[in-house]
């Protein structure tokens, strides 16, 4: 039985432990990192793709790519069936009062639902485009409602805000708009 003396090399014996240590470090990082299921758009810094959406409400024009010229604008992706969107409307009204031009993209909304929503929550939008099959939403890399995009005067996406804008974030948004104006 001279063959039985064969042993695994030393490095191989410690390898499993080393791999486990690597696993441990990796998942420690995973536990410590803030949990986020947000999907960031990869379109930031890129120009808006061409689009032309029909009006979603009777008293506002629709929204097209060509509308984004001149000064920076806030593009708000929202829907009447989304609860945080309703919570966001006072903040949008405040932004509009401070001179921000806000355009809306209404996702999969029936005209009557949207009219009711705007009547109840106010209408801070300059234009509202109806995106009934999420054509524009998918084209700008937005994955939910509400989301807001800062678009500069050349039509370039400068900033994406995921979720509703909270009152304490108004100044931050104004800052992003001012930055986009430069």
């Amino acid at each position: 039985m001279s063959d039985t003396a064969a042993k695994a090399p030393r490095w191989a014996i410690w390898l499993p432990l080393a791999l486990f240590a690597g696993f441990f470090v990796l998942v420690m990082f995973g536990l410590l990192r803030p949990a986020s299921h947000d999907v960031q758009s990869a379109m930031i810094g890129k120009p808006l793709p061409p689009f032309n959406l029909a009006p979603a409400s009777a008293d506002r024009p629709g929204l097209a790519r060509t509308d984004f010229a001149g000064k920076p604008r806030l593009m708000n992706v929202f829907a009447s069936w989304c609860v945080p969107c309703a919570a966001e409307t006072p903040v949008l009204a405040e932004l509009a009062k401070r001179g921000v031009e806000i355009d809306g993209i209404a996702i999969r909304d029936r005209p009557q639902d949207l009219a009711l929503f705007l009547a109840r929550n106010g209408n801070p939008y300059a234009r509202i485009g109806a995106d009934n099959v999420r054509e524009v939403q998918l084209a700008i890399g937005s994955s939910g409602v509400p989301e807001s995009f800062v678009i500069d005067g050349k039509g370039t996406i400068r900033y994406q805000h995921i979720g509703e804008i909270r009152p304490d974030q108004i100044d931050m948004i104004l800052g992003k708009l001012a930055e986009a104006a430069k």
Partner: peptide, 11 residues
Amino acid sequence: PVLAEDSLPPA
């Protein structure tokens, strides 16, 4: 609620 579904027919 963010993900509440809408009432439009599917694409």
